[in-house]
């Protein structure tokens, strides 16, 4: 894919984000699109957001569950960028009707780093050592592609379908919790809709962060001290609409709540 095409798709996705108007899947518009093209498109989209004054605060890892990997026919996760305007605090009202298109909620563990991590060669021990604390969070994914008709290239180009993030208010040192077996309970409008455990994301959320550090390291991008890294959903995605409220609690870590308006 040439630079002009990449820029064109990046511009279109950025416009879709701002105007809340979806576009046809890139994999239909340009069937030969590669994963590399898709990441270049996501960077173009990001450049627009940075030009608007947004600041990168972290990264998200997606496609970490076996179910989603099977659905997208891939064998590895993907990633996107988090900016300051995406971040909400627990209890927040997320303006879904004004800012989102077709939001879906995921429950996750966020890693907050105290040291840079630069792959390749990063191990789980390096990730634990570089992690200041972990926190519970909701990631509200959204798609700028019509009806979520995504293949892996579509979601990668669209900043890994990231929407907004709602962070909990408790932080736990990574050495103080078993991140693989810790349970998660997610409720929608007061009813438990799903449970899961850390292992739902690549066997352990730590594995996800290690994967990201090594993947980005190969193209010279470090994970930086202070960044928030969302490690991947531990439960199935839940479509949400204005009026819904959700809460989650993760065993040994803490909880998080959000209302959609």
């Amino acid at each position: 894919m040439d630079k002009a095409t990449i820029d064109g798709f990046g511009d279109a996705l950025y416009a879709a984000l701002r105007k809340r108007r979806t576009i046809a899947p890139l994999t239909e518009q340009a069937p030969d699109i590669t994963l590399e093209d898709a990441y270049q498109i996501s960077l173009r989209m990001l450049e627009h957001r940075l030009a608007d004054g947004e600041r990168i605060v972290g990264k998200k890892i997606g496609v970490t569950s076996k179910a989603v990997m099977t659905m997208l026919d891939v064998h590895q996760p993907d990633f996107g960028y988090l900016t300051d305007t995406m971040m909400y605090a627990t209890g927040a009202e997320v303006p879904a009707s004004r800012e989102l298109i077709a939001p879906r909620a995921e429950g996750e563990i966020a890693f907050v780093l105290k040291r840079d991590l630069e792959g390749p060669g990063v191990t789980n021990a390096d990730v634990i050592r570089a992690t200041d604390f972990v926190m519970p969070c909701f990631e509200i994914v959204d798609s700028r592609i019509t009806d979520w008709k995504i293949r892996i290239q579509d979601t990668v180009a669209d900043n890994a379908s990231c929407g907004v993030v709602v962070m909990g208010d408790r932080a736990v040192a990574p050495a103080d919790v078993d991140l693989s077996t810790c349970g998660i309970v997610v409720s929608l409008n007061g009813e438990i809709i799903s449970t899961g455990a850390g292992a739902a994301a690549l066997g352990s959320p730590v594995n996800c962060v290690t994967w990201l550090a090594n993947t980005l390291g190969r193209i010279g991008i470090p994970l930086k001290a202070g960044e928030v890294i969302l490690s991947g959903s531990l439960v199935p995605l839940q479509p949400v609409k204005p009026g819904d409220n959700m809460s989650l609690v993760i065993g040994g870590i803490g909880g998080c709540a959000v209302r959609f308006v």
């Binding site: 349970g183 449970t195 899961g196 455990a197 066997g203 065993g251």
Partner: peptide
């Protein structure tokens, strides 16, 4: 309620829950 568990069959995670 939040106590999590992971079921592995022949070394692969097949179920998780709390």
């Amino acid at each position: 309620p939040t106590l999590g568990l992971v079921v592995e069959k022949n070394g692969q995670v097949v179920e998780v829950g709390a």
